[in-house]
Simulated assay, not measured.
Amino acid sequence: MAVTIETERLILKKWTDSDAEKLYAMACDPLVGEGAGWLPHSDVEYSRAIIRSVLTADGEFAIRLKDTEDPIGSMGFRIGDSPKRGIENKDEAEIGYWVGRDYWNRGFATEALTELIRYLFEEVGIRRIWCGYFDGNVRSERVITKCGLKFHHRNENRYNSMLKKNYNETMMCMSAEEYFENKKTLKQL
């Protein structure tokens, strides 16, 4: 079953082969790829292969503008433990995302992440949400913090085989209890 998630300005839904050119136009940018931990896409066919092999997996979404349905980035989640990253329980989810540079600083990542967090807690029943950012990625740090996740731990000196370099990563999280308490407090205001 294909899930579609909507916000005021966005739709999160599956990538399709026909999105390859738009994906390439965003993902060939080295600033986008490095911030997300992958190499810039080399051509449209590489982007199409990524759509087919990675971006069509369960939990992966194109972030699309609601009025045109054009993709502006990608957001996905994985449910389950990841001990190397400090995620220890199978009823927890890690979220990853990126937005094309033309769409930075317009609140799209915050809007999409807020709604995906709601979906995972309220509809899927996840116990804890995780999201990380690499040192120097101030934009992602701001988005994750605005969405209410708090510092949990750092993963230091980890090797990224795709980028062939070490990185440091800050892991942020939010529990279901914190989410529902925050929601309750906001309703009372």
Rank of each mutant, 00 (worst) to 15 (best):
P83L: 12
P83M: 14
P83R: 09
K84E: 07
K84S: 10
K84C: 13
K84W: 09
K84P: 05
K84R: 14
R85K: 15
R85I: 07
R85Y: 09
R85C: 06
R85A: 10
R85F: 15
G86P: 01
G86W: 12
G86V: 08
G86E: 14
I87H: 00
E88W: 10
E88P: 00
E88L: 12
E88V: 03
E88T: 04
E88K: 04
N89D: 04
N89E: 13
N89Y: 04
K90R: 05
K90F: 14
D91Q: 14
D91T: 07
D91Y: 08
D91A: 15
E92W: 15
E92Y: 02
E92T: 02
A93L: 14
A93I: 05
A93F: 11
A93Q: 08
A93G: 01
A93S: 03
E94R: 03
E94A: 13
E94K: 02
I95K: 00
I95M: 09
I95C: 01
I95A: 04
G96E: 14
G96W: 06
W98D: 13
W98R: 01
W98S: 07
W98N: 02
V99L: 05
V99S: 00
G100F: 13
G100L: 13
G100N: 10
G100Q: 04
G100M: 05
G100H: 03
G100Y: 04
G100A: 04
R101G: 15
R101Y: 06
D102Q: 06
D102I: 10
D102R: 05
D102M: 05
D102L: 12
Y103D: 01
Y103M: 07
Y103T: 04
Y103G: 02
Y103I: 07
Y103A: 03
W104V: 14
W104Y: 05
W104D: 05
W104L: 10
N105T: 09
N105H: 07
N105E: 12
R106Q: 05
R106C: 15
R106D: 10
R106M: 15
R106H: 10
R106L: 13
G107Y: 12
G107I: 15
G107N: 11
F108T: 05
F108L: 08
F108C: 10
F108G: 01
F108A: 02
F108I: 11
F108V: 04
A109K: 13
A109F: 11
T110I: 12
E111D: 06
E111I: 12
E111T: 08
E111L: 11
A112T: 02
A112C: 09
L113K: 00
L113H: 02
L113D: 10
T114W: 05
T114E: 10
E115C: 06
E115M: 15
E115D: 14
L116M: 15
L116V: 11
I117F: 05
I117G: 00
R118H: 09
R118M: 14
Y119C: 09
